[in-house]
Design a binder for these strands. Structure first.
Lengths: 111, 111
DNA sequence: ACCGTACTTCCATGACTTTGGAAGTAGTGT
DNA sequence: ACACTACTTCCAAAGTCATGGAAGTACGGT
């Protein structure tokens, strides 16, 4: 019908809710996706699914949650979806959050 | 036996896992507890339960999750439990994380 | 028009989470 | 010893989440 119906839904920057962001980030699969996106400016669903070795339906599910929470941005490009971190928006809304999460080691850092 | 048996269980600083921290913080009740603790150096379970208007069993459950994830420290003092944020440990492990979470407005900040 | 690739949605299943009343444990005052 | 306060644990019900195969949608090439 209108543009919205043909567009992938993303919350507005001001609509990004901290508890929702933390909830989606509190899953090892999704945290890994965010870490991957932090190093790879933009990439496709298949790249992410291959990297994590998960079925496409599972990957699609996690990517939808990340997008709906406002963590990622999805852009259609042919049959592909180009996914990126909404770092600018997240930094505006929760300064320091993304840096503290992607900057942290995977668990056994400085010791 | 030893001190541990008489002590409330907390993970070691190096054992605090980021995904686990984010998962427990991704709940509005627990996020509110953390924000309260960030302003009140140390407080009791009843203070928290009264502040959030939740039953004691529910409060006890959320406080256990926060403690087990390494977000809070619980210290027995008579019949009371004195609860505090493990800000020092969290800052050591994930610099900037606590500041970005408690520093953020409740949702509709700068606009 | 047809096919292949890329991705989404549907759906069932099992696992985990949250809630809160009731019962239990543990210090403290008398 | 007894009662009181502070908190924890048990339990069951209800709700939410993650997984992945199968079916569906959409774009691009031929």
């Amino acid at each position: 019908m209108d543009v919205v119906a043909r567009t992938i839904h993303h919350p507005a920057t001001t609509g990004i809710d901290l508890a929702s962001v933390l909830r989606v980030l509190g899953d090892p699969v999704r945290l890994e996706i965010v870490r991957l996106l932090a190093t790879l400016d933009e990439c496709t669903c298949s790249t992410i699914q291959a990297h994590l070795d998960i079925p496409t339906s599972t990957g699609s599910y996690h990517l939808r949650l990340l997008r709906e929470a406002g963590v990622t941005r999805t852009r259609a490009s042919g049959t592909e979806r180009r996914i990126s971190l909404r770092r600018d928006d997240l930094d505006e809304r929760f300064p320091g959050l993304v840096a503290s999460i992607v900057g942290a080691g995977n668990g056994d850092g400085p010791g």
